[in-house]
Amino acid sequence: MIVDASSSAIVTERALNAIAGRIVAGASAVTNLRRLSGGASQELWRFEVAIGDRSIPAILRRAPGGGRVSPASVGPEMEARLMSAAGARGVPVPPVLYVLAPEDGLGRGFVAGFVEGETLGGRIVKTEALASARAVLARQCGQILARIHALDANEFPGMRRFTPLELLDEWQAAYRATGTPRPVFELAFRWLRANCPNPPERPRLVHGDFRNGNLIVGRDGVRAVLDWELAHVGNPMEDLGWLCVNSWRFGAMEKIVGGFGELVDLFAGYEAEGGAADFASIGWWEIFGTLRWGVMCAGMPHAFREFDRTVERAVIARRASETEIDLMRLLTAHPAH
């Protein structure tokens, strides 16, 4: 099937023009609409809202085709609510300008202000221009995570809740559903079950996808935290461990935190902002996070065959093996069970 990208853009532009005044009061039109690559689970469009002689850069984040929201996702409306609440508590986020309504004819999604900066993980860990950011990123991530985890989870009803054991059940079922046997994943599930942490005394709001690649970074450090769709309620260490998964170090393997920093700085930032968590379990959460990314990749061949026959999807599917080599390294370094 050949997607007629140009007509899709025209339809989107017409619909955005109609709601320009709701995105920014007093605006009458949008300009320079273009689809951004990246965002396998979401459509991203960039445009400017024209108001008088000014133009305000904005991003439309929309469910693919307008309506396909994965069951694991909180949905774009909740995502926008979470971002606004987090922003009010000092978490850097793109400002939410407008949440789409059904009558807008654009499907489900929201419009946020455009934040200038780097999002590509490979550049964030390497480029000379961001050396000053790398010096502070781990500590900043700790501070930001502590603020996210201080949000009141009860303000967001309907959010899924998981104890560590329930998370294992959830991801083990997802792995089994792929139908492909993976001896290395079996070893990891076995080890994780044998060493499973207790449920946290106070479950927290967890971002669910806080990692290098979902952060907008400038010379001063983190400018915005993106991609809130996998938020849930659970153990705050899940976010800290996910940030340390080797896949998100983009080749800078020696820098455990996101390929840019050290655990000691991540923990110090977390504590400085009043966060308290079981730091000793970081190894468990790193292994869990590695396995979780592996199961996500292992589920891609199904998505590729059923509804998203893109090259990008095929290539992500073939990243499952990177988690197997990381799991082998991590599991052979821990005592056997």
């Binding site: 080797n246 170090r249 080749g251 800078a252 393997m253 073939r318 990243r319 093996s321 990177e322 080599i325 990381d326 082998m328 390294r329």
Partner: peptide, 11 residues
Amino acid sequence: DQPAYSGYRAA
């Protein structure tokens, strides 16, 4: 899949 992957080179 990824002969340049950091975890592969390290292994």
